[in-house]
Design a protein around this nucleic acid. Structure first.
Lengths: 162, 162
DNA sequence: TATTGTTATACTCTATAACTATA
DNA sequence: TATAGTTATAGAGTATAACAATA
């Protein structure tokens, strides 16, 4: 386990930081993916889609989901189709625009998500146990700056990339 | 773009931190992947494999690559096969163990990697422009603690998972 | 028997582009 | 003409498990 084995040159600090950031998220993500698969027979993209819907009880349009999940439309259709087939989410007509749907959790989908969310939270809490509350906040703040900067860059490169 | 739209409950801090960490690494990774594809017609796993070899001029065994890249053996075989076919890396017999190889960059592979690494570094530097040198170091240190904790957890769960 | 690496398989996610239907 | 969503396609990455050769 050593993605950090790179890093040359003059900007070694940035490179090392990036590799460390990547390693951290990969390690945590890997545990989450494995857990979701083994305990709930599901995947991270599916979980993420349901998580978005949980935050929006009135549902989200396909386009919105695509934007929030940072994937293209075709993928959202595919994942949504699966979840619909399993009765976890449903497509609902939108008044005034017969092209669009509102996707929302079914009651069964909501309770299934709650069960997963409880477990998911435990994985995440365990992942950051090593930090004090103060460090946790510090890290959150620093990553906030990083995130904002990425969004700024994307905006510059092309608003649709946001 | 809003993976952070989750986060309930009592441990909202940890959840928000995780979602932000994930968002940051996804945003940066996405740009790196796109750049590698568009400018060099390659992928991140291929780049990562070559990066490992660049750091180890004497080569690495398949098993070692698998461990460092955190993927299973079959995948390393597949990626290595591609790179061999393109003349970027080569398999070399290992004295005293006729089962194993040492995989190493060819001269052409080395120079191809150098070209990519220069560009890659620019992407990464740009990604962290928003931070002062001091913040950069702070972030590096905090992520170091996070990383170490993940490794500790993996060790506890099963040494082979490391 | 255990280990190194390969093969075969199957699945998920992904982007792209062409398409349908509405607006 | 533009937009919402779907379909079709192709490709990459992944894990798993069975396998061959060697230790």
């Amino acid at each position: 386990m050593d993605l950090e084995a790179r890093a040359h040159s003059e900007h070694a600090h940035e490179l090392r930081l990036w590799l460390r950031l990547l390693t951290c998220s990969q390690l945590i993500e890997k545990r989450v993916r494995t857990g979701l698969r083994e305990q709930f027979d599901t995947t991270l993209p599916r979980f993420d889609l349901m998580a978005q819907l949980e935050r929006h009880p009135d549902g989200l349009k396909m386009k919105e989901l695509s934007h929030r999940l940072m994937v293209t439309g075709g993928n959202v259709t595919g994942i949504t189709d699966q979840l619909v087939a399993e009765g976890l989410v449903e497509r609902q007509a939108v008044d005034g625009d017969r092209r669009a749907f509102r996707v929302r959790l079914t009651p069964g989908g909501r309770s299934a998500f709650e069960r997963m969310a409880v477990q998911h939270e435990q994985w995440i809490v365990a992942a950051f146990e090593g930090l004090s509350p103060r460090e946790l906040e510090q890290l959150h703040k620093l990553l906030g700056q990083v995130k904002q900067h990425q969004l700024d860059i994307n905006q510059r490169l092309g608003p649709e990339a946001e």
